[in-house]
Amino acid sequence: MTIVAEVVRSGFVESVHHGIVALTGRPGVGDTGSPFFPRSSNKPLQTVGMLRSGLVPREFADLAMASASHDGEPFHVERVTAMLAAAGLGPEALRCPADLPLGETAKRAYLRTGGEPAPVLMNCSGKHAGMLATCVANGWDLESYLDPKHPLQVALADAVSELAGEPIAAAGVDGCGAPVLAISPDALARAFLRLVEAAPGTPERQVADAMRARPELVAGPESEDTVLMRAVPGLLVKRGADGVSAAALPGVGGIAVKISDGSARARVPVLLAALRKLGVEPPLIEEPVLGGGRPVGEVRAVW
């Protein structure tokens, strides 16, 4: 396994991170052809499947919300609630687990009000709201919408496989309870590039355009996904748990990153390095190593 990042503290390399990086049309790093679980980086592909299955979004921006790993800010929760209401449903229809906001700022503010964990706060609730709205549009059962054999999940798996250009290698259960589908890093990078290079008005392009138009819905105001999509015109980015990220820029290429030990702090420097390999100069997003509450080092890409 290739070392893709190292942690430097006070001038000394204290640890390293191994990983895999797939780049469309260019040599990658590590075994980019073997399947893995992209976690939430699957979401935009699943949203394409929802559109192909008859989802009619209440608003264009709801497609960004359905593809999100949101921070749980009040505007995120309000939009998820509105998506459900437009389908004639309430938050009680959600089958994702109760949780607190993912974003630290949103979590602290919510806890100060005495708030308790709730499914609508869970970072995947937008995806679940989109899934439920798709079921309503088709008259499918709502109670079992997370079952891999449910017509919804069969349709979404078909969409992911078609976009990836390879069969689904395995189906697991993601943290939110929905199926997560294993494809290779090469396939993930290829699928993201398909989204941004699709013809305007197609389901693929609608999802990419919605995410790029409203990146604060996809994650949070200060997340790397939001910062990068705002800074680089046309760039699509979607992070996933356990050190995963995927990105694509039309006419340039697609990227898939997987940090082997699941480290989130190594993900961003490696993604920025991958963008530079494609000739894109991303904004500086620092990943400082702290000591005594102040920066004493950094996490840097080395591949």
Rank of each mutant, 00 (worst) to 15 (best):
N42I: 14
P57D: 09
A208W: 02
T226W: 06
I285V: 05
V120M: 04
G25C: 01
A178M: 06
A273W: 00
G11A: 15
R112P: 05
L89K: 08
D186C: 13
G201V: 07
S125A: 02
V8Q: 11
K127C: 04
E222T: 14
G19C: 09
V299H: 12
A264I: 12
W140A: 09
A301E: 03
T32H: 03
G103S: 04
L142G: 13
G19Y: 01
E14L: 12
R52N: 08
R267D: 13
C96V: 10
H76N: 04
E14A: 12
L278K: 02
D71C: 07
M229C: 13
G165S: 04
G234P: 01
R108C: 06
V289C: 10
P148A: 11
L142E: 12
F12M: 15
T47W: 02
E166Y: 00
W140H: 08
G88C: 15
R58K: 09
G234L: 07
E287D: 13
V207A: 03
G243A: 14
G130L: 04
V257Y: 05
P250G: 07
V227F: 13
V180P: 10
I3F: 11
R205F: 08
N42S: 15
M83H: 04
P148W: 10
E92V: 10
L193R: 00
F37V: 14
A191G: 05
M50A: 05
V180G: 11
A109W: 07
